[in-house]
Each structure stands twice: as structure tokens, then as C-alpha cells.
């Protein structure tokens, strides 16, 4: 059976089963994508259950000389080692995942909702509304997102998880809005929209029952890539020592950023502590693992939803 006929069959099947079901089946046939999805979900669940897995209080410090700043070891289950106040790095990494996922998932969800609404309105109505909304999107993206986030954090002076969520959501919606607008503007001219209108469907019904379900693939891909982008921007900002303080809410970014404070062992100043590699390596590795897996999932989703383009 050639690829071409299988795509035709799948397209036929799509009419009977729905776009997302077929895409999910295609996605399930990619072992790498499935593995990546499993890893992301496992890490996110571990983060969400951090307080169950590591029930000791977050700020458990142990200043006894044999625990402080210790390389990874099986004894005492310090698998990721301990930091300069004797806190367990595995525990801190778990809580770091929790903070990072809380900020990234919530911000991505809010940004996607705003982006879908704005993109659908701009794409469907066109004209001055389209021009206005898309120029607002241009404004938000005129600065690199990292710069805009830093500006906003400086403006708010102190960052909490909810401040970060508001900041990311109000910047990143533009990315989703552009993608949805392009898709909806293309769909608007198709016959099924004319048919719906001829049947007397209202604008709201056409947008929510006909256009957006057809654009759901675009939304899904955009939202997935948004999660990755937000995690990356958040980590970068935390690395600059803006954003959340590592002592109160450890996140993957600010755990890596601890090397800034402790000079990474590079300083010629003997008074500066050279921090062990494990204190930044494991949070950094977790961060990279999450980002690689999210990108793999996003690409596989894109391929599964647009099978024809994927075979080029």
C-alpha cells in the first residue's frame, strides 16, 4: 500500500471519524513522539505530586558538614546531591518542575484562549477589526519576548507565579492569534461556511461550531509550542536573576541560575564558593529534557494533523 493511497483513505476516514481522532491514531504510530509525550507527562505528574513524593518541607536545610554541598550518592537517597545549605537537589528539582509547569501550563492556556478568540474575530470579520487586532499583535511582538518580560518584571518590581502568568499570557497570545487568524481567514471563503450562513447560522455559531473546530489542529500545535517557548523564556529570565527567587519558589530556571551567585567555580577570588556541577546540572538536564520532548511532541502533532505536508 503506497503512502498516497493511505493518506486518501485516512482523509476519507477523517470525514467519518473526525480530524482529531485520525490525527491521534497517526500520532500513536510514532514511537519517538509517544515516548516524548510519556516523558513530559511523567515529569509533569512528578512535579505536580512533588509534595507527595518529597513530603519533607521544602526548606529542609541540614548544615552538618557531611551533608552540605555533597555530590550525588545513594546514602540518604541524595541522588542529585545536595546544595550549599544541605537541601536535597532531587527534591528541589521536583519542586522546580512544579513551579515551572504551573507557570507555563497556565500561561499557555490563558494565552491560547485569548489568541483563539482574537484570531477567530480577526480572521472571520476581516476589515478594520482584523487590521486593528493584528496591529496590536505587532506591538506585542516588536520586542524580543525576553526583553518585554524583563521590562514587565521591573515594572511590577516583585514577581510571583501569578505575575509571571499574567505577563506571559499578555505577550504570547499574539503568536496563537496570528496562526488562528491565518487559518480562519482561509476557511472563511469555503463552501461549508456559505452553506452554514445560508441555513441562517449566526456569526457566533459559524465561528464556534464550524470554523474553530476545523482550526483545532492549528490551535493544538500552536499551544504545544507555546508551552515550550514559555518554559524557555521563563528559564532565561530567571537565569538573569529576575522572576521568582530560588529560595522561596525553586523553578528549573532559577535552580540553574544559582551558578551565577556562586560563580560556577570559575572565580579567581578564593572566597567565592565553587558550586558543584550537580547543583545546576540536574535541573538543567530536566529543563532540556522537557524542552526536547515538547518539541518532538509538537512536531509529531503537526505531522499528524497535516499528513500531506509531512510527506515532502
Amino acid at each position: 500500500m503506497t503512502t498516497a493511497t493511505s493518506i486518501e483513505e485516512q482523509t476519507l476516514a477523517a470525514h467519518q471519524r473526525g480530524l482529531l481522532t485520525v490525527a491521534a491514531r497517526r500520532f500513536a504510530r510514532e514511537p519517538l513522539a509517544l515516548a516524548a509525550l510519556t516523558v513530559v507527562i511523567a515529569l509533569f505528574i512528578a512535579g505536580a505530586l512533588a509534595h507527595v513524593i518529597a513530603p519533607r518541607a521544602l526548606y529542609t536545610i541540614n548544615l552538618s558538614a557531611n551533608v552540605i554541598h555533597h555530590a550525588p550518592e545513594l546514602a540518604g537517597w541524595h541522588l542529585f546531591g545536595t546544595d550549599w545549605v544541605g537541601a536535597d537537589m532531587l527534591q528541589r528539582t521536583l519542586y522546580g518542575i512544579r513551579t515551572t509547569e504551573e507557570v507555563a501550563l497556565t500561561a499557555a492556556l490563558v494565552a491560547t484562549l485569548i489568541g483563539v478568540l482574537v484570531g477567530a474575530l480577526a480572521g472571520y470579520y476581516g476589515g478594520w477589526l482584523d487590521a486593528l487586532l493584528m496591529r496590536v499583535a505587532d506591538l506585542v511582538t516588536a520586542y524580543p519576548a525576553v526583553v518585554l518580560t524583563l521590562v514587565a518584571i521591573v515594572y511590577f518590581r516583585e514577581a510571583y507565579p501569578h505575575t509571571l502568568i499574567i505577563i506571559f499570557a499578555s505577550i504570547m497570545w499574539a503568536v496563537v492569534a496570528r496562526a488562528v487568524r491565518a487559518h480562519v481567514a482561509g476557511l472563511r471563503e469555503q463552501e461549508f461556511v456559505d452553506a452554514a450562513r445560508a441555513l441562517g447560522a449566526s456569526d457566533a455559531r459559524i465561528i464556534f461550531r464550524h470554523l474553530l473546530p476545523n482550526a483545532s489542529g492549528t490551535v493544538l500545535v500552536a499551544a504545544t509550542s507555546l508551552i515550550g517557548q514559555i518554559i524557555l523564556i521563563d528559564a532565561t529570565v530567571e537565569f538573569f536573576d529576575y522572576g521568582l527567587p530560588a529560595s522561596v519558589s525553586p523553578s528549573l530556571g532559577n535552580l540553574v541560575a544559582d551558578v551565577v551567585q556562586f560563580k560556577f567555580g570559575l572565580s579567581s577570588d578564593p572566597a567565592a564558593v565553587g558550586l558543584g556541577w550537580w547543583t545546576w546540572f540536574f535541573p538543567g538536564l530536566t529543563l532540556v529534557l522537557i524542552l526536547v520532548c515538547i518539541n518532538l511532541v509538537g512536531d509529531a502533532l503537526d505531522d499528524a494533523l497535516n499528513p500531506v505536508a509531512a510527506h515532502h
Binding site: A235, T236, G284, N295, L296
Partner: peptide, 11 residues
């Protein structure tokens, strides 16, 4: 390319 794209620039 997957790994290079996913590793943050600061790392």
C-alpha cells in the same frame, strides 16, 4: 537540530 533547538542559549 532537535537538541540544539531545545537547549536554552544560556546552558
Amino acid at each position: 537540530s532537535y537538541i540544539a533547538w531545545a537547549v536554552p542559549a544560556f546552558i
